[in-house]
Amino acid sequence: MTDAPETYSALDEVAQPRVRRSRLQKAWIALKGAPLTAWFGMIVIAIYMVVALLAPLIAPYGEADSSFGAYLPWGDGHVFGTDQIGRDIFSRLIYGARNTIGIAVVTTLLAFLVGGGLGLAAAISRGWVDQFLARAIDVLMAIPSLIFALMLLSIFGSSVWSLVVIIALLDSTRVFRLTRAVAMNVAVMEYVEAARLRGEGLGWVMRREILPNIMPPLVAEFGLRFCFVFLTIAALSFLGVGIQPPTADWGSMVRENASLIQFAQYDLKAGITPLLPAGAIALLTIAVNFVVDWFLIKTSGLRDEV
């Protein structure tokens, strides 16, 4: 600690002690330190993904197979009974994972493609393009998104694609704001200025200088936006204007079986049937939120371990 200036050497200057590790090792170290909530979240997400991908293999009956009696009780070949027109609820729950999660993922990806791309472009170009986009998005955001979605659905009708496009566009406004804000913070850094002074093109600056540095907040935001989109689509389906029958979807399943809840005092199992799809929705969003929470703490604190 007491190097004499005479023997000063830049080589010996104390930097942060480092051990070089591969990405895999780093990931493992991060995982080992993860709290229980994060582990819980990751396991739940993994199970959902497996179920969604392998739905046709796991489900005992078909998605729209209504060849059974209506309102059959739990057990007897139908784990959770059947619904009002005689479809196996357990099978529909499994197919629902595929449809509901699939649609939400596609919607969120689309929202990020549009919102993220525009946000990045606005942050770098500044000037009137940025001003125009920012003001236009302020106006769009002055209408609550569920209300806006309802209005647009009343015009364009409730097909899966109009649902995906409408929700994605509405949600892209939020993505735009975040991307623009974080990209602005990076764009004013001197290393970006240094790249511009060097004469680098816009593409290089975006790809190589800015994007790698805004990934952590964007990844976290992807999780949060997914939850929001997922809940919005579930709400719309529940309201009867989202995903339309006979496609199995958790939101509409709650709606279809809602009346069963009145019978809870006679048959508790029948009573909680409508809560199964609702619970499935909640469990996934809680899981994602737990993982995002941990990821945020991780990236804001120990940056080099990510």
């Binding site: 809940l231 579930a234 709400a235 529940f238 809870a264 005092q265 909640a282 809680i286 994602v288 939120n289």
Partner: peptide, 23 residues
């Protein structure tokens, strides 16, 4: 609160109905 935020409103509503109205 993190768990509550993650639940769809209709789940909260039906849980309340189940416990405070039906049962």
């Amino acid at each position: 609160t993190l768990s509550t935020i993650s639940m769809p409103e209709f789940l909260v509503a039906y849980l309340l109905i189940l416990f405070l109205a039906t049962l």
